[in-house]
Write a protein that binds this DNA or RNA. Structure first.
Lengths: 227, 227
DNA sequence: CGGTATCCCCGTCGATACTG
DNA sequence: CAGTATCGACGGGGATACCG
């Protein structure tokens, strides 16, 4: 817990827990369904493992997270109280979507983008068998330009080295463009049309690929009217 | 703004602004209707004026607050973006109400309680003319035990010295009891019955006084079922 | 009323390395 | 995979005084 505010208002009491750096993002990852320490880390790559560990302990003490260890299989799950933070995360995210449109270059991160996209794969829309989507970000730092999503009915794997399978669809885009599409700031079709996002592969798959990803949960938030 | 998270997620971008200490409480005060620097201070008595000033400037830069100075009359008001933080504050407060029931003695503060109550006076329920409610907290620190609310149709004044008017109703309560009633953790009737809250004055006014205050906006939040 | 100026401390966080 | 250990810097924020 953070420093106390010495106020009885429930907003103050809640924020004593929630306003520490990273805490809300840890909750966000849990709300998104990550349960394991290293999965949480992948969604929070700039957070040190020490701090993640401390935050998880704090959340556990606060009754928001339950840690279970079944043998070596450690899981962090939201309790009922934690699950009720979902509306808070949603309200914050909706507000951020509407009022913080501009992204700086430092906000762009191919690791995070691919990790997020892998979580939003709509298996129902994916062809039978194994589907391999290659992602290329020519403007990303060396070593973070090439990614592969290996999608089956059971799971989606993220690879930063060529897994060796045949690629079904290859997407090449600037980091900013695909991030904008993911966030719902830019439509897929507009990105393709402008040339900043290219899709390679058989025509039926090229047409289908936008359906394969449900995008960010906030992509559908209506934006403020232009004034 | 706080330190950047280097994430494109709208939750991260929003929390860069909102997770700094005190920021959400400043927004809460603005949502509750305070507009002037010293009114904000009364709702945030443990916050230094320097820090309040800095937070207001940050919120202004972020497009959440608009500062207007009409002569010497300075006002801080929420912009449209700021007004849309109301659902965030409400979600946080509702969560806190449900899941952080226990208050420590350090959370109790007569200044704050009286200030909050003065904002929740339901003028429609108050008798015509001037109504003076005396509040007494025998267990509060010296100098913070006696308060008076001077209520007219136009405004409610908070006094920590006897304003000299005849008192219509006098309420005596432990700090914890009246705070609990205010928060909706304890019903007025139950507090009276238990003897920890006493009301003095003419019988009709004694019966009417619970209607004079609408209590905390979170008082009506349903509590989790006991398990 | 509506703020600034200053000062110093302490705690948080970041970075890195390492372990069962 | 799931964390701990260590350490240093920095800067946020608390306290207090003061000003227009």
């Amino acid at each position: 817990m953070g420093a106390p505010y010495h106020q009885f208002c429930p907003v103050s009491k809640a924020m004593e827990l929630l306003d520490e750096r990273w805490t809300m993002l840890v909750v966000r990852e849990l709300v998104m369904g990550s349960e394991r320490f290293n999965d949480l880390r992948r969604g929070l790559p700039r957070m040190s493992p020490t701090l993640l560990s401390r935050r998880l302990q704090q959340l556990e003490r606060a009754g928001i997270v339950e840690r279970t260890a079944d043998g070596g299989d450690v899981r962090y799950r939201l309790t009922e109280a934690g699950e009720e933070l979902r509306p808070v995360v949603e309200a914050v995210g909706a507000w951020g979507t509407r009022w913080i449109g501009e992204l700086g270059d430092v906000d762009l991160d191919p690791k995070l983008l691919v990790w997020d996209m892998h979580r939003s794969v709509d298996v129902a829309a994916i062809p039978e068998g194994r589907t391999v989507v290659q992602l290329q970000f020519p403007d990303a730092p060396r070593g973070q330009r090439d990614w592969w999503l290996v999608i089956t009915a059971d799971e989606t794997d993220v690879c930063d080295v060529d897994p060796g399978f045949d690629v079904n669809v290859s997407i090449s885009s600037s980091l900013h463009t695909l991030t904008s599409v993911w966030r719902g700031d830019l439509e897929w079709g507009a990105a393709v049309k402008s040339g900043s996002l290219q899709v390679d592969g058989p025509a039926p798959l090229r047409r289908a690929v936008p359906e394969w990803f449900t995008l960010s949960v906030f992509a559908g938030v209506p934006r403020p009217a232009i004034r």
